[in-house]
């Protein structure tokens, strides 16, 4: 009895425990809020600074020459969408097919190397991608171009899409593959019609996440797409992009341009938020069994 009773905390100890419990809960909550705070700060400032400069002409007009008020970023918005389309044209097929190889075909040893390479590539600083593509595409063709920018962003997407595709394909239960094999269906058909179809939402999610990731990249575009104050009529010409335009306006000495940079940042952020919300909705419904 006495030996047991010694384990029971005294009223004072109990009070102390309740106190520390409450303090720690508050500290942890504060940490969690600190994580969320920057997002709200970013959104708050973007809306406060950018919303006033957002008008119809921002979406429809070209940048005005220095000193002239008004103008917009229509070319940069179109440029970013063009670059993303080109990046997707490279990143999606290579990434998805690479992911299918990893999940369905590759040997253990080959896969280890491929995964390791992809993970290293995911960690390569984006400015390095820009320099590599500069050396590969800009120097030989003697011009900055939309192609170069699209390739730089596309190459960044490949390892991202590949790894997420692999992950969602591996999540598809083996039972579906076996059931399909037992029906005498060819392997490639099973992969396309059963496995990839089952994991489709996950694959789309992965592609969107990768697109959102590269949509805001500035560094790989600095010496590839370069930026352009006018419409680009050919993909072999330099092309404007929102992050580039924001960058050059933000470091300019003009207040008017600063306001436009804020507006551009707001548009870019809204674009990425939309993609992220889409991803949330898609991945919430992802269930396999």
């Amino acid at each position: 009895m006495t030996a047991r009773a010694s384990f029971a905390p005294s009223p004072r100890q109990q009070a102390w425990r309740r106190f520390t419990n409450r303090v720690m809960a508050v500290v942890l909550l504060a940490c969690a809020l600190t994580v969320m705070a920057p997002l709200f700060l970013v959104l708050y400032y973007l809306v406060r600074e950018g919303a006033t400069s957002l008008d119809w002409s921002f979406f429809t007009q070209l940048p005005k020459p220095t000193g002239e008020p008004g103008g917009g970023m229509a070319n940069a918005i179109a440029g970013t969408l063009t670059l993303l389309a080109m990046a997707a044209a490279i990143g999606v097929p290579f990434g998805i097919m690479g992911g299918v190889y990893l999940a369905e075909y590759g040997s253990e040893r080959a896969n280890d190397w491929i995964r390791f390479t992809a993970d290293v590539l995911n960690g390569v600083p984006s400015i390095v991608w820009g320099m590599v593509v500069y050396a590969l595409l800009v120097v030989p063709f003697k011009t900055f171009s939309a192609y170069a920018g699209g390739v730089a962003l596309g190459l960044m997407m490949v390892p991202l899409v590949m790894r997420t595709t692999e992950e969602v394909l591996v999540l598809v239960p083996q039972g579906y593959r076996e059931a399909a094999l037992a029906l005498g269906i060819a392997r490639w058909r099973i992969i396309v019609v059963i496995v990839m179809r089952t994991a489709l939402k996950g694959i789309v999610t992965g592609v969107l996440v990768a697109l959102a990731r590269v949509a805001g990249e500035t560094a790989p575009l600095l010496f590839t797409a370069l930026g352009n104050n006018f419409w680009s009529h050919r993909l072999s010409e330099p092309i404007a992009a929102l992050p580039l335009q924001i960058f050059s306006y933000a470091i300019s000495p003009y207040d008017d341009w600063h306001r436009q940079a804020w507006a551009g940042a707001l548009v870019l952020m809204a674009l990425i938020l939309i993609v992220n919300v889409t991803v949330r909705v898609l991945s919430r419904e992802r269930r396999f069994t």
Binding site: P173, G175, Y176, E178, A179, A180, A182, L183, G184, I185, A186, R189, I190, V193, I194, R197, T198, L200, R287, F288, T289
Partner: peptide
């Protein structure tokens, strides 16, 4: 030589009819 497994595994993206006909259609 067809096979039925321990755990029922209808293809989740397919309807009842599509499941039954999967072997024929995909062949």
């Amino acid at each position: 030589v067809g096979m039925v497994f321990q755990k029922s595994n209808p293809f989740p993206t397919m309807s009842i009819a599509e499941n039954v006909l999967a072997g024929l259609r995909l062949n």
